[in-house]
Amino acid sequence: MKKFFLLLSVLLGSIITTAQDGFSDILAAGVEAGERYSNSYMAPAGEALSFNLSSGWYDDARVLKPGKFKIQVKAHGTFAPDSKKNFLLDPAEYEAIIQDSYDNTNNPPANIEVSFGDGSTAPRSIATALGENAMEQQLIIRSREATSGILLQEDVINLPNGLGNEGLDLVPTAFLQAGVGLGAGLELKARLVPKITFEEAETSLYGVGLQWEFTKLLQPSDDSTLPIAASFLAGYTRLDASYDFEDGVVVDGANQSIETQISSLNLSAIVSTNYKVLNFYGGLNYYRGTTQTDLLGTYTFASNTVIFPIAATVEDPISVDTDINGFLGTAGVKLTLGAFNINADYTFGEYSTATASIFFRI
Rank of each mutant, 00 (worst) to 15 (best):
E136I: 07
Q137Y: 04
E350S: 13
G282W: 03
R288P: 00
L217Y: 12
S242I: 01
K189G: 08
E95G: 10
A28S: 15
G179L: 03
A48F: 09
A129K: 02
K70S: 14
T313V: 00
V333F: 10
S148N: 08
P44W: 00
W212H: 09
A45W: 04
I71H: 06
A28I: 01
V31C: 01
T173Q: 12
Q138L: 05
N52H: 03
G30M: 04
P123D: 10
G131V: 09
L130M: 11
T17H: 09
R288T: 06
A28W: 02
K189N: 14
Y346G: 05
D321L: 05
F214V: 02
F116D: 10
I71V: 15
L284A: 14
T305N: 00
N266L: 12
I307Q: 03
W57L: 02
L226C: 06
E35A: 13
L88C: 09
I196D: 02
A29E: 09
A174E: 06
N106G: 15
I16E: 12
G131F: 10
E132K: 15
G338E: 03
Y41R: 03
Y102N: 04
Q72K: 15
P109L: 08
D25K: 11
Q20L: 13
Y206T: 06
A356M: 12
A339Q: 14
L217V: 11
Q99P: 07
G329C: 01
A230F: 14
M42C: 09
S204H: 10
L278P: 04
R62E: 13
R36P: 02
G179Q: 08
S242R: 12
A356K: 07
Y299Q: 00
E95Y: 10
Q256E: 07
L27K: 01
V73H: 14
G119D: 01
N341L: 07
L130D: 04
T347F: 04
V306H: 04
T203K: 02
T290F: 07
L163T: 03
Y206N: 10
T121I: 15
F348H: 08
V10Q: 13
G329E: 08
L267S: 05
E350H: 11
N111P: 04
F23M: 07
G13I: 01
V250T: 02
W57N: 08
A45I: 11
W57T: 03
D240S: 12
V306G: 04
F87G: 06
K70N: 14
A122W: 05
G282A: 08
F308Q: 00
A92N: 13
L284K: 03
D82I: 07
Y94C: 06
Y281G: 01
Y281C: 02
G349S: 12
L7T: 12
I150Q: 14
E259H: 06
I324M: 11
D252L: 11
N279G: 06
